[in-house]
Simulated assay, not measured.
Amino acid sequence: MKRTLFWLNRGLFYLLVVFVVVYSVFPFYWAVISSFKPSSGLFTPDPSFLPIPFTLEQYRNVFVGTAFGRNLLNSLLVAGGATLLSLVLGVLAAYALGRLRFPPKNAVLYIVLSMTMFPQIAVLGGFFVLLRQVGLFNTHAGLILSYMLFTLPFTVWVLVGYFRGLPRELEEAAYVDGATPVQTLLRVMLPLTGPGLVTTGLLAFIAAWNEFLFALTFTVSDVVRTVPPAIAFFGGATPYEIPWGSIMAASVVVTVPLVVLVLVFQQRIVAGLTAGAVKG
C-alpha cells in the first residue's frame, strides 16, 4: 500500500512538472514556429506544430523597410542606461540603509517601498508634464529617467538585504585599518555582493527592456522609440490586417537576448537568489 502511494505521489508530481513546463514553454515555442511560417500558414484550420513550410519571410519583413534595428538599439541604450544608473545609485543608497545608522532610516525604506505601490498610469500624467517642461520628452534621457521610477526602488530594496547579510566584522576591520566608509564600500563590501548585483541588474534590465506604457507615451518617433511600442505599431498590407507573422518574429528577436543573458549568468543568478546568510 505504501509503495503504491509512493509511486502515485511521484507520478502526480512529474505530471504537475510536465504541465508547468508545457504551460510555460508552449507560448514561446508557438511564437518561434509561427515566425518561420508564411503568412498564409498562420490561419489554416488545421495548424501544424512544426514550421512547415519553412521560410524567413517574416524576419525579412521585420528588418527590411522598417526601423526595427534602430528600435533594438534604442531599447538596449535605454534599458542599459536605466539599469546602470539604478545600480550605481542603488548601491550607495542600499549601503547607507543597510549598514549605516541614522534616525530616519526606516522612514526612508518605507518611502522607497511606497514608490513601488503606485501603478504606472497613476504617475503617467505628472511625468508627461515634467518631461515636457524640462525638454526631455521624446529623448533617451527622458525614457531612462522614467524607467528609474520602478528600477531604482526595486534595486535599493533587494540590495539592502544583501548588505545587511554581510558580517559586520569585515566592516569593523576595514575601519580599524583606516578605511573610510566609501573605501569600505568599494573595496570590501561591493565585491561580496557580486551575485546580488548581477541578479538585481538583470531583473531591472528585463523590466526596462519589456516596458511598454512609458515608452509608448513619451516617444513619438522611431528615432527614440523602443521595441515594445514599435511592435505595437507594426502594420499589414491593409489598414485592417494584423501582421501576426511579423509580430511573432519581432517577439522572438527581442526575447533571444534575454534568454542569452540568463544562460550566461545563470550561476550567478542562482547564487544571488539563494544568498541569504554569510558564514564568517
Rank of each mutant, 00 (worst) to 15 (best):
T200W: 08
G196N: 14
G161P: 08
G196M: 12
L197W: 03
I144L: 02
V198D: 13
V129P: 01
L159V: 10
L203F: 15
A204V: 08
P195K: 13
F205P: 06
R168V: 14
T193P: 01
E172A: 11
R132Q: 15
E172R: 06
F128N: 14
V188F: 05
R164D: 07
A173P: 03
F128Q: 07
P153D: 05
L192K: 10
S146A: 15
F154S: 12
F163G: 12
Y175V: 11
R168Q: 10
L149E: 00
R168F: 06
G161H: 02
S146Y: 07
L203C: 02
F205N: 05
L190G: 07
H140Q: 09
F137I: 09
L197D: 00
L145I: 14
G135I: 02
Q133K: 14
R168P: 00
L192W: 02
P167L: 13
F163T: 13
V176F: 12
L192R: 14
V198N: 10
F150H: 12
L143C: 02
L203D: 04
V176C: 13
L186I: 13
A141T: 04
Q183I: 03
A174D: 12
L170S: 05
A179L: 12
L203T: 01
F205W: 14
P153W: 03
E172T: 01
T151L: 02
T180L: 05
P167F: 10
T155Q: 09
L152P: 11
L170W: 15
A173L: 09
L166T: 06
H140D: 05
G178Q: 06
L185I: 12
I144Q: 06
G196I: 11
A179E: 02
V160T: 12
V188R: 09
L136K: 02
L185P: 15
L159F: 09
L136R: 04
F128G: 04
G142W: 00
L152M: 06
R168N: 09
A204L: 05
G142C: 03
V176R: 07
T151P: 04
T155G: 06
P181D: 12
G196Y: 09
L166N: 05
R187P: 03
F150R: 13
F150I: 07
E169W: 02
L149S: 14
L186P: 03
T151H: 06
Q133N: 14
P191T: 10
A141N: 03
L190A: 08
V134P: 01
I144R: 05
R132I: 04
R164Y: 01
P167R: 08
L170R: 11
R132T: 10
L152A: 09
W157T: 14
L170V: 13
A141S: 09
G165F: 00
A173Q: 12
P181K: 08
E172D: 13
Y147G: 05
V176K: 03
A173D: 02
T139H: 00
G161V: 00
N138S: 04
R164L: 11
G201S: 11
V188W: 04
L202Y: 07
D177R: 05
G135D: 08
T200G: 09
L186A: 12
L166G: 07
G165H: 03
L170E: 11
G161K: 05
P195A: 13
L131R: 04
Q183A: 14
L185T: 13
Q133V: 07
N138F: 01
A204G: 11
A204T: 13
E172C: 00
F128V: 04
V156N: 11
F128I: 00
P195S: 14
T155C: 08
R132P: 00
P191D: 12
P191L: 08
A173R: 04
L152V: 05
A174N: 01
